[in-house]
Amino acid sequence: MSIVIYIEHTEGTVKKNALEAASYAVKYAEKTGDTAIGIAIGKVSEDEIKKVGTVGLSKVIKVDGHDYLNHQKVAAILAEVANTLGANTVIFAGSSEGKATGPRLAIKLSSSVISEVVGTPSSTAPITVKKKCFSGKGLANVELSSDKNVIIISTNGFGVHEKTVDCVIENTSSTASDDSIKHLSFDRNTEGVSLPDAELVVSAGRGLKGAENWGMIDELAASLEAATACSKPVSDIGWRPHHEHVGQTGIAISPNLYIAIGISGAIQHLAGVSSSKTIVVINTDSEAPFFKAADYGIVGDAFDVVPKLTAAINAAK
């Protein structure tokens, strides 16, 4: 049987989380004894697609003839190609596109679907995978009894594992479509690095006292090429845009590094960030609950500490 991975790209550049999905699929296929095959759709060059060879994926099917893609169209095309290949498993990155496309595809394939998955199967009979639940406050080991599965991984929940192989590309075309939704426009967040898939995140809370004080946060983020985030009240008051709100009711992230500045560490905030690999907390209050979830803590005034940290990072470059 074959395992299919959807290779996402943004305007022709293969996304980092597509590499994570490919890396996951290669390991998954090793466990089940299946063959992993990538599917890339639309305007993306062969050289770009071949990047998945760096994580061990040796075959990709390229579907031509599509410019703009929404999740409904992608699901229609993937269903056609997956059926032709006789795929029993389809793997998606935990991106917005993966999360929107996976459930639709599952219905088309009459398969099961599971999201926020953090590891390859611990058992193959039945397929048993671990997923995040309760907004990161717990993990569930789930047995899948269906013969087909759509698996959506949790961003940064598996990582990119290098293993270089030759990647062969086969071309095909598809007429599958879905025009029931019309795309009008795309409005890119202008600020720096995109938060959902960022590896480094600098985040600040109400301890910063006002929107006018975010300059030092932006400078710290720039020194690390990190994305910026904030606590819920900060976006509620309008100091920062909503898409920066992380936590149980905002977005959940698991970067390699999360620096929390002037954030108390309320349970709802921690729920969305505690699976970050390394957490640094900067807070004036040594009793702030966030220190219990941190790897490195600094008790100090953000207005004093943050510029020093930025200078130290720039000096170490």
Binding site: K137, S145, S146, S275, A294, D295, Y296, L309
Partner: peptide, 29 residues
């Protein structure tokens, strides 16, 4: 077609290492 076999708690963090506010070079290190 799904059954939760069991749950795990997230792995707890080791104790937080405190760094002096005047020694950001140490944090970077």
């Amino acid at each position: 077609s799904q059954k939760i076999a069991n749950f795990d708690a997230p792995t707890p963090k080791a104790a937080c290492k405190m760094v002096d506010a005047n020694n950001m070079e140490e944090l970077v290190n």
